[in-house]
């Protein structure tokens, strides 16, 4: 017991409490039944304990998602802290599942838990990785699609952290636009 208390004291606390969610597409069930809260964590050490024990994103089957959101925010557009927001979207080719996906997702997680976005960390809601046969996607969700300064700063930092070439353009889409159009037709509100 003493050791546990000691370990608690010595762990490195994160700025935010984060929750990991898992989604598995079972078509016979309503969407919300397919979404499960896995666990929440508040320290660097507990993040790694979790990350080390769960399946890599690249090993999940098609139709599955991992989401990491600040505790209390549900990983859906409808949540009050998401609905006016949007996402920086990274679309991957099929080949990149094996070459890049896990590293890009880990980098995304490190950006979030490390609070990499300077004065705009409070605009971050979470991040999602979608495993899909036609191509996987990673997105960072922010709370206010109208906050140009926050959104563009986050986009620039995120793109740099992912090590994307300056020739690659990534786009930010408001959830309100994504919700009313099919993905391929959603226009980018911002690009970096």
């Amino acid at each position: 017991k003493e050791m546990t208390a000691m370990e608690k004291v010595m762990k490195n606390p994160l700025q935010s409490r984060w929750a990991l969610w898992f989604f598995k597409n079972v078509k016979s069930q309503p969407w919300q039944c397919n979404l499960r809260l896995v666990t929440a964590f508040t320290t660097v050490e507990d993040f790694w304990a979790l990350h080390t024990h769960i399946q890599l994103a690249s090993k999940l089957s098609s139709g599955c998602d991992y989401s990491i959101f600040k505790d209390g925010i549900e990983p859906m557009w409808e949540d009050s802290r998401n609905k006016r927001g949007g996402r920086w979207l990274i679309t991957l080719s099929k080949q990149q599942r094996h070459s890049d996906l896990d590293a890009l997702w880990l980098e995304t997680l490190l950006c979030l838990i490390g609070e990499a976005f300077d004065e705009y960390n409070e605009d971050i809601c979470g991040a999602v990785v979608n495993i899909r046969a036609k191509g996987d996607k990673i997105a960072v969700w922010t709370r206010d699609a109208e906050n140009r300064d926050a959104v563009t700063h986050i986009g620039k930092v995120y793109k740099e952290r992912l090590g994307l070439s300056s020739k690659i353009v990534i786009g930010y889409q408001a959830h309100a636009d994504t919700a009313t159009k099919s993905n391929s037709l959603t226009k980018n509100k911002f690009v970096v």
């Binding site: 370990e7 490195n12 606390p13 994160l14 700025q15 660097v44 050490e45 993040f47 790694w48 304990a49 080390t52 024990h53 980098e107 490190l110 838990i113 490390g114 609070e115 990499a116 960390n121 952290r161």
Partner: peptide
Amino acid sequence: GKKQYDRDFLLSFQYMPACV
């Protein structure tokens, strides 16, 4: 203060025995 951690600091914990 705000707890911001750079990637190298975070990665240094990745393979610590206490974490597995």
